[in-house]
């Protein structure tokens, strides 16, 4: 433990190699998964695999697992704000059609764009 409370952790090459293997496997898997028709779940699965791969890179290659709490907070807040941006914008796009209506015959204004 050094004075500033930030311990420099040395990750072993063996672990790095394992992560490399996992990432390559994930890449292969995501290509295979794309060739099966899962409808809308294709994209979900692809993003899920990508997220797992990203987590591996952050946790091990980037030493996120061994970083100080503060650094981890910085990482998490980055993704949190990204989620705010994506999520709140999606609230607009995903609710444009089914609007609350008093009348039985709403003048549904389509959102389709030319």
């Amino acid at each position: 433990m050094s004075e500033n409370g930030h311990q420099e952790h040395v990750v072993s090459p063996k672990l790095y190699a394992t992560i490399l293997a996992a990432l390559l496997f994930g890449t292969w898997l995501t290509v295979q998964a794309a060739k099966i028709d899962l409808g809308r779940w294709n994209i979900v699965l692809a993003l899920l695999i990508a997220t797992i791969k990203m987590s591996l890179v952050i946790l091990f290659f980037m030493h996120g697992k061994y970083s100080s709490r503060r650094t981890q907070l910085v990482i998490v807040s980055g993704f949190f704000w990204l989620a705010i941006m994506l999520g709140l914008t999606m609230t607009d796009y995903s609710t444009r059609k089914p609007e609350p209506s008093r009348s039985a015959n709403p003048p549904a204004i389509a959102i389709h764009r030319a």
């Binding site: 709140l88 609230t91 607009d92 796009y93 995903s94 609710t95 444009r96 609007e99 609350p100 204004i109």
Partner: peptide, 11 residues
């Protein structure tokens, strides 16, 4: 602008 009513209410 024509953004969704729900979104407008939330914002």
């Amino acid at each position: 602008t024509g953004e969704a009513t729900y979104a407008a209410i939330a914002f």
